[in-house]
């Protein structure tokens, strides 16, 4: 079971309330999908500039593996107030610790609720279905 202290998108981003802000990252499943277990397959991550306003569901960045480019989608709308720039130079963080050190952006949300997102149990079902292919 994945952490239940946060909420999820079916496109495999997570969102965690942290005071007045929301931390956003991608799940271990997203990393596995892109890298297929070989972390060297992740080659580039493009994160947004500070101060950018984004809408819920909007693309805030992109991540590239050897064979695919995937969008990073915002679970909540708001202002980008912090970016984890360490990821851009150390993509291995995403494989070793996607839940804590691997956070990507901190958003000051226009609405603080995460109720529109999936809980851990519902997300687990999405992953199970995807793995059943």
């Amino acid at each position: 079971m994945r952490p239940d202290d946060r909420k999820y998108m079916d496109s495999h981003e997570w969102a965690k309330l942290d005071g007045d802000t929301v931390l956003v990252g991608i799940t271990d499943f997203a990393v596995q999908e892109l890298s297929h277990g070989n972390i060297d397959d992740l080659v580039y991550c493009d994160l947004p500039e500070l101060g950018r306003m984004i809408e819920q569901g909007e693309t805030f960045g992109e991540i590239e593996s050897v064979k695919a480019v995937a969008d990073l989608n915002a679970p909540v709308g708001g202002e980008i107030v912090e970016v984890n720039a360490a990821i851009e130079d150390h993509l291995e963080i995403l494989a070793t610790d996607p839940w804590k050190q691997g956070w990507m952006v901190r958003i000051k949300p226009t609405a603080k609720s995460l109720e529109h997102l999936l809980d851990a149990e519902a997300y687990e079902q999405i992953v199970t279905e995807a793995q059943g292919a």
């Binding site: 079916d10 496109s11 693309t59 050897v66 064979k67 695919a68 480019v69 995937a70 969008d71 989608n73």
Partner: peptide
């Protein structure tokens, strides 16, 4: 890469994917 298609000991097909909004 290991997933590439080769013949005559050389790469003959280039491939890439974009995954966006489902």
């Amino acid at each position: 890469t290991p997933l590439d298609i080769v013949w005559d000991e050389a790469k003959g097909v280039g491939s890439a994917q974009r995954r966006r909004r489902g």
